[in-house]
């Protein structure tokens, strides 16, 4: 089985909200102090899912990204966490926010690799919060698609998987023939830490740089403004000697202001 895990780096999603600001002229997000670029959280779960399938059934796992060289630490993290090889495709010129160009570039790169049985992605990358790429990739490849996936088991026939996907009010158990694109959610596993040895090995591994970027489409929706949204509120702290007193005082305020 050949599993391709599509990964990307994002600015640390746990960076304190106060460090975030917007450069409105450039329509770019900024962080001060800088938010560390990290492998996207859900992608870590996708890598772990691939590593588990590899352990259970044997598989080759390729980590793939469409990004500049600044994304290589993320690929190395994927290598340390169980991927066998890493491929980076330089992003298409002028892609901007065109996710479809990214999906086409990923698909083009996947077609140059040994046939992929399973393509795993994270369900969404924190930041622009779009989550388009996995679904688009499935369409471009012509593969069926499942998301958000919270469990995945390979069947003995090696040609199909059984998975769970979340629904609005619960989940479904689904049978799918391979190949398939699955976008995983965090419930699927607890990513293990890479060991120091695997971290060192990953640092020494070679990352394949492929071209295959597919030009962006001029008709993509264009970003015309980015502005900050201040959600912060002036918090009125309830006073009181003990926690119980403060609970009672809160009740009085809620009652008085007609919250109940």
């Amino acid at each position: 089985m050949h599993i391709v895990v599509c990964v990307c780096q994002v600015p640390d999603p746990q960076a304190p909200a106060g460090s975030f600001y917007v450069d409105e002229a450039a329509m770019e997000p900024r962080w001060s102090p800088a938010a560390q670029p990290l492998l996207s959280t859900f992608d870590l779960h996708a890598v772990e899912a691939a590593a588990c399938l590899k352990e259970a059934h044997g598989a080759t796992v390729t980590a793939l990204t469409v990004a500049g060289p600044e994304a290589e630490p993320g690929l190395r993290r994927a290598l340390a966490a169980g991927c066998d090889q890493a491929v980076r495709v330089a992003p298409p010129a002028g892609a901007g926010h065109d996710r479809l160009a990214i999906a086409h570039s990923l698909a083009a790169a996947i077609r140059t690799l040994p046939p992929a049985d399973l393509v795993l992605c994270g369900r969404i990358a924190a930041g622009w919060d779009m989550g388009h790429v996995p679904a688009m990739l499935a369409e471009v490849l012509g593969f069926p698609y499942a998301s958000p996936v919270t469990a995945i088991e390979a069947r003995d026939d090696g040609a199909s998987v059984e998975l769970r996907r979340l629904t609005v009010d619960g989940y479904e158990v689904v049978h799918a023939d391979l190949p398939l694109v699955a976008a995983v959610s965090n419930e699927i596993n607890e990513p293990r830490y890479p060991t120091m040895r695997s971290v060192l090995d990953a640092q020494r591994a070679t990352i394949t740089v492929a071209d295959g970027a597919v030009a962006a489409d001029a008709t993509a929706a264009r970003l015309t403004a980015l502005r900050p949204r201040d959600l912060s509120a002036e918090c009125e702290l309830i006073d009181g000697e003990t926690a119980e007193d403060r609970g009672m005082a809160l009740a009085a305020v809620m009652h008085e202001r007609g919250f109940v």
């Binding site: 971290v199 060192l200 020494r204």
Partner: peptide, 9 residues
């Protein structure tokens, strides 16, 4: 890069 990777782990 190795040292940085170890530190961050």
């Amino acid at each position: 890069p190795e040292q940085e990777a170890i530190r961050s782990l």
